[in-house]
Write a protein that binds this DNA or RNA. Structure first.
Length: 573
RNA sequence: CGGGGAGUGGCGUAGUCUGGUAACGCGCUUGGUUUGGGACCAAGAGACCGGUGGUUCGAAUCCACUCUCCCCGACCA
């Protein structure tokens, strides 16, 4: 490729709209342009990166026996209605009608389509196992697209699905994917972690997420440095010291607490209590049915845990009016004591606690001496609290920390959720009809690109891992009007291309500074500069990531370069 | 959906409070001088100021409505 003939619209200044580092750099370096909120055009540089990522994915997927498909993005409502997700997906699904008025949607994921193929075509256990995958555009009408290409409404995803006769087969497919994913991310040059995750609306028994630690991320991961425990806070647990309560009163006692609205207020109010000795009462609407959620005063609820433990599809805090109607009091004075006929779910850590303080369901009044077992009718106990940095690891004696991360992949053991609702059955060896056991596995292709930029950049621009850089090498003659430089760079260019190096020749009639700045910004991993020392038969070999350069003689440069590229692409398992 | 911010040549901005017919930097075009970290000189091109309606002799500027984008939150395989 010749630079003079490529479209690389780099910008000198950062566009104002961009906040995330990857957003700024991809925009400035000429990789992406926004069309509308959460929808981006991928320019030639980005397409080169995406193609390199997808070809790595293809190789590793094919290695575990995956077969590539290309499925429709346009789906009929019927298959989504069969699995119930036509309703579940709510506003997040792009919906449209065709000329006949029939309901259609744009695929957010492809369990339904693949399962419909499976039910139509798979008849016998002898046809199993299967691993089917595709790399395709998905659509989700995100309430708030953000961070450039990290959270978008239209995005490229590799999704695969495994079809097995039994759980043992599912385990194998799951494990095969896990290993393939590790290889894919390693080959893409990403530092990543695997964490336990909530299956959420996907259903299924087990799921693992592949995460890249980054402040641009939207997930929080609890991890232990001592034992490799790592889990999404939606799932993470921790080890906390027990609290011993003093023996409480015979019965709960109501007392006035004028002006007290928060847990914090009550800790300093005379006759109040430390946050650890309070019960926080939250009112939630679980699929439009009210529920009380009880937490220890100093603990935060994790809403995903609430959803997972109640099976609620839609969990939201109740509005003040709904709360007033339910309990007859305002937030700040709420409690569960004496509440009947309302679903009450309490965090496990409240079990057995006595002598607690909580709201009295009477504005400006609280109760003290509350003993949970005696005074509150808990419908369900569950782990509901969000782990925070500094708590004990549930697995060893270490300490947890909570960090932000970008989700770049997610693998699920689905089980029979989709095969049952869509009647995808096969006959087993006994001639009995059984539902196919499925797994679902996704990789965000665009997120790999953006994560690499988030992870590897400096003040001058992007520092791509060699394996996914748009070009491996740029040849930069400092002055294209110098006949020797021009001739030599041309010869080198031809030679390196013949060796299969992905090279771009910066043949623009520009000052060297412009060329260097552009190459650094775009993030080309290696540069061969032809300048003054060419007279002595030497060129400069520059490494983007380290900014180190060395003089290399012309007859050795090809070897030096090939060695560098090969070394950079090696994956150490 | 709630809160905040912003729409002015391709990009980044000033001008808006206090109405008088659009300015600056970058980029672009042409000519010349340059050529190792975003050169310099000269001459140019390019904007109905997001849209609609209103007030006014006169609106980028004031008023109303509306659209879009960004940020925080809610939401989210």
């Amino acid at each position: 490729m010749r630079w003079s003939k490529t479209f690389t619209p780099t910008l000198r200044e950062n566009p104002t709209m961009a906040e995330a580092v990857s957003h700024k750099l991809l925009l400035r370096a000429g990789y992406i342009r926004q069309l509308t909120a959460g929808v981006y055009s991928y320019l030639p540089l980005a397409q080169r990166v995406l193609l390199k990522i997808t070809s790595i994915i293809r190789e590793e997927m094919n290695n575990i026996g995956g077969q590539e498909y290309l499925l429709p993005a346009l789906n009929p409502a019927e298959i989504w209605q069969e699995t119930g997700r036509w309703e579940v997906m709510g506003d997040n699904m792009f919906r449209l009608k065709d000329r006949k008025g029939a309901d259609l949607c744009l695929g957010m994921t492809h369990e339904e389509v693949f399962t419909s193929i499976a039910r139509d075509e798979l008849r016998s256990y002898k046809q199993l196992p299967q691993i089917w995958y595709q790399i395709q555009t998905k659509f989700r009408d995100e309430a708030r697209p953000k961070s450039g290409v990290l959270r978008v409404r239209e995005f490229i995803m590799k999704d695969s699905y495994s079809f097995d006769l039994d759980l043992e087969g599912l385990d194998k497919a799951f494990e095969a994917h896990r290993e393939a994913y590790c290889l894919i991310y390693k080959r893409c040059g990403l530092e990543f972690s695997i964490v336990e995750a909530s299956s959420g609306a996907m259903g299924g028994s087990k799921s693992s997420e592949f995460m890249v630690y980054s402040d641009a991320g939207e997930d929080w991961i609890a991890s232990c440095a001592d034992c490799h425990y790592a889990a999404n806070v939606e799932k993470a647990t921790s080890r906390l010291p027990n609290i011993s309560d003093e023996t409480g009163t015979e019965s709960a006692e109501k007392f006035p607490t004028p002006g007290v609205r928060t847990i914090e207020d009550l800790t300093t109010f005379p006759g109040g209590a430390a946050a650890t000795h309070q019960i926080k009462t939250l009112v939630y609407m679980l699929d439009d049915k009210p529920a009380l959620v009880l937490m220890r005063g100093d603990h935060q609820l994790n809403e995903t845990k609430l959803g997972d433990s109640t099976g609620a599809i839609n969990a939201r805090p109740a509005h003040p009016a709904e709360i007033q109607k339910l309990l007859g009091a305002s937030p700040g004075s709420l409690g569960a004591v004496g509440v009947k006929d309302v679903f009450i779910i309490a965090d496990n850590l409240l079990q057995g606690r006595t002598n607690m303080v909580t709201g009295a369901n009477h504005d400006d009044h609280h109760l003290r001496g509350v003993s949970i077992a005696r005074d509150i009718t808990v419908t369900k106990w569950a782990d509901l609290r969000a782990v925070v940095t500094g708590e004990g690891c549930p697995n060893c004696s270490g300490t947890l920390r909570v960090d932000k991360a970008i989700e770049i992949g997610h693998i699920f053991k689905l089980g029979t959720k989709y095969s049952q609702s869509m009647k995808a059955n096969v006959l087993n060896a006994e001639g009995k009809e059984v539902p196919i056991i499925m797994g679902s596995y996704g990789i965000g292709v665009g997120r790999i690109m953006a994560s690499a930029v988030e992870l590897y950049n400096d003040t001058d621009g992007i520092c791509w891992p060699v394996s996914i850089a748009p070009f491996e090498l740029v040849i930069t003659p400092t002055n294209i009007n110098d006949a020797t430089q021009k001739e030599t760079s041309e010869k080198l260019y031809q030679e390196l291309m013949a060796f299969g190096v992905d090279v771009i020749l910066d043949d623009r009639d520009d000052r060297p500074g412009v060329k260097f700045k552009d190459a650094d910004l775009i993030g080309i991993p290696y540069r061969i500069t032809l300048g003054k020392k060419l007279k002595e038969g030497k060129v400069e070999f520059f490494t983007r990531k380290t900014k180190q350069s060395q003089d290399v003689s012309l007859d050795q440069i090809v070897d030096v370069l090939k060695k560098s590229i090969a070394t950079a692409k090696i994956v150490n398992p």
